[in-house]
Amino acid sequence: SELMNSSKLIRMLEEDGWRLVRVTGSAHHFKHPKKPGLVTVPHPKKDLPIGTVKSIQKSAGL
């Protein structure tokens, strides 16, 4: 199965306009000026399962 580095996923979010608002432990929480909701990324993780990545991307509207 495909894995993604959390840094790469965070870069994709930031390029889309998401900004880090809070860190709780290894959970990084992002908000967007125009899009609704809060997106949480486990970080640092070298090997996020593709299912997790897809669900984060979906929440972020990517």
Rank of each mutant, 00 (worst) to 15 (best):
G25K: 14
V53A: 05
H29Y: 12
P44F: 04
H29F: 15
K34T: 14
I56R: 01
P49Q: 06
D16V: 06
L20Q: 06
M4K: 07
T52M: 15
E14G: 06
S26Y: 12
V53R: 04
S55G: 09
G37Q: 06
G17W: 02
K34N: 12
R22I: 08
K8I: 14
P49F: 05
R19N: 08
D47E: 13
P49A: 11
M12Q: 09
H43C: 03
M4F: 11
Q57E: 08
T52G: 02
I50P: 12
K46T: 13
S7E: 10
V21D: 06
D47A: 14
I10Y: 02
N5A: 13
H43I: 02
K58W: 06
K31D: 09
G51I: 09
I10R: 02
V41A: 01
K35C: 03
T52D: 07
D47V: 13
P33L: 08
H32K: 02
K46M: 13
T24N: 12
S7R: 09
R11M: 11
K8H: 14
M12R: 08
H43K: 02
E14P: 00
L3E: 11
A60E: 02
K35I: 03
E2Y: 08
P36R: 11
L38C: 12
K58S: 09
L13Q: 00
L38F: 10
V41Y: 01
H32F: 01
H32L: 00
E2K: 07
R22W: 15
L48H: 01
G51H: 13
T52Q: 11
H28D: 02
I50L: 13
V39G: 01
W18M: 00
V39I: 11
S7K: 10
D16E: 06
G17N: 05
F30H: 01
H29G: 06
L13I: 08
T40F: 10
R19V: 12
D16G: 06
K54A: 10
P44I: 04
G51W: 12
P36H: 09
Q57C: 15
M12Y: 07
G61S: 05
L13H: 00
G25L: 14
A60M: 04
S55M: 12
K45Y: 08
K54C: 15
L20V: 09
K8Y: 15
G37R: 06
L62H: 04
S26C: 12
E15F: 08
S26G: 11
G51F: 08
E15V: 08
T24A: 11
S55K: 13
L38R: 09
S26F: 13
D16Q: 05
F30Y: 09
E2Q: 09
Q57K: 11
H43L: 02
S7F: 15
H32T: 00
K45T: 07
H32G: 00
A27R: 11
P49W: 05
K58P: 02
V53L: 06
V39F: 01
V53M: 04
G37V: 03
R19E: 07
S6A: 05
N5K: 06
E15Y: 08
G61Q: 07
P42C: 05
V21Y: 14
S6M: 03
T52K: 08
L9S: 01
A60Q: 01
S26T: 11
V39Y: 01
K45V: 15
R11N: 10
V41E: 00
K35V: 03
P42Y: 05
P36S: 11
L48N: 01
Q57T: 13
I56M: 02
Q57W: 14
L38I: 15
M12C: 07
L9D: 01
G17Y: 02
T52F: 14
K34H: 12
V39E: 01
P49M: 05
K34G: 07
K34D: 10
H29R: 10
P42L: 06
H29E: 15
L48M: 07
K31Y: 08
V41Q: 00
